[in-house]
Design a protein around this nucleic acid. Structure first.
Lengths: 250, 250
DNA sequence: CGTTTGGTTGAAATGTGTCAAACTTTGTGG
DNA sequence: CCACAAAGTTTGACACATTTCAACCAAACG
């Protein structure tokens, strides 16, 4: 609905993300700013795209939280990734015509739609940007792999701790962490769908973790009182996120 | 150990795979054939690369079976993908300097090492090949996502059926299926590590599936007497494999 | 042949799921 | 600002899928 709008470079999540990987040239930065992007605000709990769709454009999350999910035939949902500002969750559709995933908002979001045509054009003109996008999809793949490990080989308690670690580190990378806390407005049902367990069990595990002083969840805020302890519980090693700039140990 | 060797185009797994996506030009095909590739034979149960490595080259599986896996801190293994001829399982290392996975042979394999330098050169010269490699990594990501769903939301029986379906379809795509059967020399322990369950349970589930007439496992051969039934049990939809050429229904 | 590796079996332990109800918080319209 | 509805969280009891442990068996192998 909203008309194309100008975003200040420093606040453009895409630019911020790419800059965290390598230094953009002025020309590259300008090309990104000039990308024709239709910014829409979408309310919470809406599918943005659905499995089976054949989109002609991709979208960047500018603001808010979304998740990528799949369903079994009998209607059980598995969230395979939480997407945060700066992500382009369906960039795969540039190459793969039919979507094998659905993507839904978890909160109200503003997303920027970019036509595949414009993306292709950008990639052709700026091979370094093409490489950066490719790289992003590879990191995404690495995250999926870690999730297979997490769901397949860790028990609920550690699995949950691992997820919290990942979210905090990824949020920190896009400057969405304040101190040891970040805004994480997701329900226990959504956590359950991400971890492959039942909502009831999520509740029990969360209480246990709170009791152990690993996390604090007040309203939509996730606070990590003891990062090292959480990391230990989650068996968490950020290597798979392939962040270029690790932040100093807490 | 082995010296670079010539492979007939029709038997070159890489070319065969790319040709299944789009028609290569003569020039592209020649460029692939000219890729300097060091072919090594590696015996079974050997790590080819390990998590933490910083490889300067990638490798294509020319022959044999390998798996990509990760380990938890307390030594539990999760296989995240089986790799078959035509795959380049660590092509991600082109962009991501440090490996977040290990890759091991399951059988004796012949693999072709290609330096990153040569791959970059190829990608620069032939953008369609670069796009094809990117696409391959995206399909790989789609497979990981499906595995998260499989491990997170399906019970052992269906999970196993799903894995068998995937293996058969992927093997068929590279002409490794004869009739309804394919060579699948993996142990029950390896299946357990792929499905995130215990070897004992794999055994029980396999017996149940055999009893239900879903699969036959004699020696290293997997036979599928009733594809539709297996597909049903595995809740299997090949969409996520993004094969260009579906094969006609059995 | 003995040794190794992988497969099979049973019994007991356990993590997690299911169901159903109660409780709490949030949001909304009167 | 209250009242109510809706959404999300918490709790308990019980069921069950899967794990663990330990032993035994069968096939492959040098």
């Amino acid at each position: 609905m909203a008309a194309p709008q100008t975003i200040h470079p420093d606040h453009h999540p895409l630019i911020r993300k790419l800059e965290s990987i390598f230094r953009l040239t002025d020309e590259e930065r300008q090309a990104l700013l000039n990308l024709p992007m239709q910014v829409n605000v979408i309310k919470e709990d809406q599918d943005i795209v659905r499995e089976g769709d054949r989109p002609s454009r991709s979208f960047a999350i500018l603001n808010g939280l979304t998740c990528t999910y799949k369903m079994t035939g009998d209607g059980r949902r598995q969230i395979v990734k939480f997407c945060i500002p700066g992500d382009i969750p369906d960039i795969q559709s540039l190459h793969l015509k039919v979507l094998d995933i659905s993507i839904a908002t978890l909160t109200q979001c503003s997303v920027g739609f970019i036509t595949h045509e414009a993306l292709w054009d950008l990639c052709m003109r700026y091979p370094r940007l093409a490489a950066a996008f490719w790289r992003e999809t590879l990191v995404e793949g690495a995250i999926f792999r870690e999730w297979v490990l997490n769901v397949g080989r860790r028990e609920a308690y550690n699995r949950m701790a691992h997820l919290m670690c990942e979210m905090l580190v990824r949020m920190r990378a896009v400057a969405l962490v304040e101190g040891h806390a970040c805004n994480l407005p997701i329900t226990q049902i959504e956590i359950a769908d991400a971890l492959g367990i039942s909502p009831v069990h999520v509740n029990r595990v969360l209480q246990q973790m709170r009791g152990d002083g690993l996390i604090e969840l007040k309203g939509d805020w996730l606070n990590i009182p003891d990062w090292e302890k959480l990391k230990e519980a989650g068996d968490f090693d950020p290597l798979y996120l392939h962040l270029v700039q690790e932040w100093p140990a807490a």
